[in-house]
């Protein structure tokens, strides 16, 4: 009987150790991912208008366990700098784009942010690390339910998921300091513009699946005027050198 307990104890220690080792491995990969983003940002500084991203954003990127937000079979590549499929025709953007989009929102700790298109909840988790409250809307019930469960399990109590039509925003919690529209949009829903605070920012990635072509930044001035900027995330000068 005693021998049985000893075996059980040894196995339990082994399992705990294995989990720890895996956790360490993910941590190491995450750090590597962040280093890659830092290097990429330096390379694209001219296009995005800054040499580095907000330190708080990079901290959030190094904390959020991206592997929890991708299908189990893709955990091994969760920290590669590439977009990944999450089912239902949706993808999780490549980490560099996620960091850039979050940075463009210029968030502060007391901000209330709306996200349209929860997907797996990764972007919401990043935002939840940075702001007071995140309200996120998903149109596909299955994705919304699993994101809700995942965010709760990972302790993101300030991220609230709702399964609804993102077109009308979330009137009860408006106005928002920032809005992230990660779902594909043929046009920008007018209610979202209305729900953006004066001085607030909205970021919209434009492009097909696996292909973020450019990021559209919508700014509402203190006077309520709208200004938009197209941010190309790469250095690509369309002309070759002068001849």
């Amino acid at each position: 009987m005693q021998r049985r307990y000893v075996v059980f104890f040894i196995v339990a220690i082994g399992v705990v150790y294995a989990f720890d080792a895996k956790a360490d491995e993910y941590q190491a990969r995450r750090e590597h991912m962040v280093k890659e983003i830092v290097a990429d940002v330096k390379l694209t500084s001219k296009q995005i208008g800054k040499k580095s991203l907000n330190i708080r954003v990079m901290d959030a990127m190094s904390r959020v366990p991206r592997h929890e937000f991708v299908p189990f079979r893709l955990r091994g590549v969760a920290y590669e700098n590439r977009p990944l499929p999450i089912g239902y025709g949706q993808t999780i953007s490549q980490p560099y784009i996620v960091a850039l989009m979050t940075d463009l929102l210029n968030v502060e700790p007391n901000y209330v942010v709306l996200e349209v298109g929860t997907g797996s909840g990764y972007q919401a988790a990043i935002l939840a690390e940075l702001v007071k409250d995140v309200y996120t809307i998903e149109i596909v019930p299955q994705l919304g339910e699993s994101a809700k469960e995942r965010l709760k399990r990972l302790g993101y109590e300030n991220a609230v998921v709702r399964i609804a039509d993102g077109y009308y925003g979330w009137e009860e919690h408006a106005p928002f300091d920032g809005i992230m529209v990660t779902a594909a949009a043929g046009h920008i829903p007018p209610p979202l513009i209305k729900q953006l605070k004066p001085g607030g920012r909205m970021v919209i990635p434009v492009g097909g699946p696996f292909m973020t072509q450019q990021l559209m930044l919508v700014e509402k001035t203190r006077q309520g005027k709208i200004k938009t900027t197209q941010v190309l995330p790469v250095i690509f000068v369309p002309l070759t050198g002068a001849h």
């Binding site: 890659e36 990429d40 390379l43 694209t44 700098n81 590439r82 490549q94 560099y96 784009i97 850039l100 492009g207 097909g208 696996f210 292909m211 973020t212 072509q213 995330p233 790469v234 250095i235 690509f236």
Partner: peptide, 14 residues
Amino acid sequence: PEIFSLKGKGGLPL
């Protein structure tokens, strides 16, 4: 070559 060098930085849509 330029587009492939930008693969990790969101350059593939080009």
